[in-house]
């Protein structure tokens, strides 16, 4: 299929979109929690993948390549958005560039726009809201692990992270999720 698509066949491209549109859109939607925006990012992802398909290396899992591009698009967006939020609200007490990045991502994340009707039906459940409270880096790891069923090694490869970091992120993410879900019951 991918080999066929590499020759630029319309039908093969469509088949690849059909096969991956739901997983890619679902990941992006859970990352940015805005349907229209997730769709823009998904579109951007597929255009990049299909126009760049000649550079695809077959030793890399094709879905990993798509998720890598999708995740980068989401993280870039969240980072840009948080910088906007910061410049509006004034910088927090961050001193080093790393702290700025860390706090800005979290700030942007919290400054979430309200969900519309469809979005709150789709993303309003307790587990979805708990996922939304995770740092974006934790969120993509946990979604790839348990929604896509990726192994730790595949996630490390997809997200360009050391294996140990992936494990730490996933364990922390599950811990935080448990905490958020328990809070709700008290």
């Amino acid at each position: 299929m991918v080999a066929w698509a590499k020759q630029g066949h319309d039908a093969a491209f469509r088949e690849l979109v059909r096969r991956y549109e739901r997983p890619v859109f679902s990941l992006l939607y859970r990352m940015v929690r805005d349907r229209a925006l997730a769709e823009d990012l998904a579109q951007e992802t597929f255009i990049k993948v299909l126009n760049g398909i000649k550079s695809y290396r077959p030793e890399f899992k094709f879905s990993s390549w798509i998720f890598k591009i999708a995740n980068n698009a989401a993280i870039d967006h969240l980072r840009r958005k948080s910088i906007d939020t910061l410049s509006l609200d004034g910088a927090p007490s961050a001193e080093t560039p790393d702290q700025v990045r860390a706090t800005s991502l979290q700030l942007g994340d919290r400054a979430e726009s309200p969900l519309d009707e469809v979005e709150s039906r789709e993303l309003g459940t307790a587990i979805e809201r708990a996922i939304a409270r995770l740092r974006p880096e934790y969120r993509s790891c946990i979604l790839l692990r348990h929604v896509e069923g990726y192994s730790y090694e595949e996630i490390a490869e997809t997200l360009d992270l050391p294996l140990g970091t992936v494990k730490t992120y996933i364990h922390r993410a599950r811990n935080e999720l448990r905490g958020y879900l328990d809070d709700r019951r008290e």
Binding site: Q7, D10, E39, R174
Partner: peptide, 30 residues
Amino acid sequence: KVILQLVQLPKFAPSAGFADRVMAQVKVHA
């Protein structure tokens, strides 16, 4: 319990015509 909830998360679909909108911007080798 947490893992079970994650595994059971639904997949969402983009709106109708998504593939067409993508294909409109992709170079196809006719």
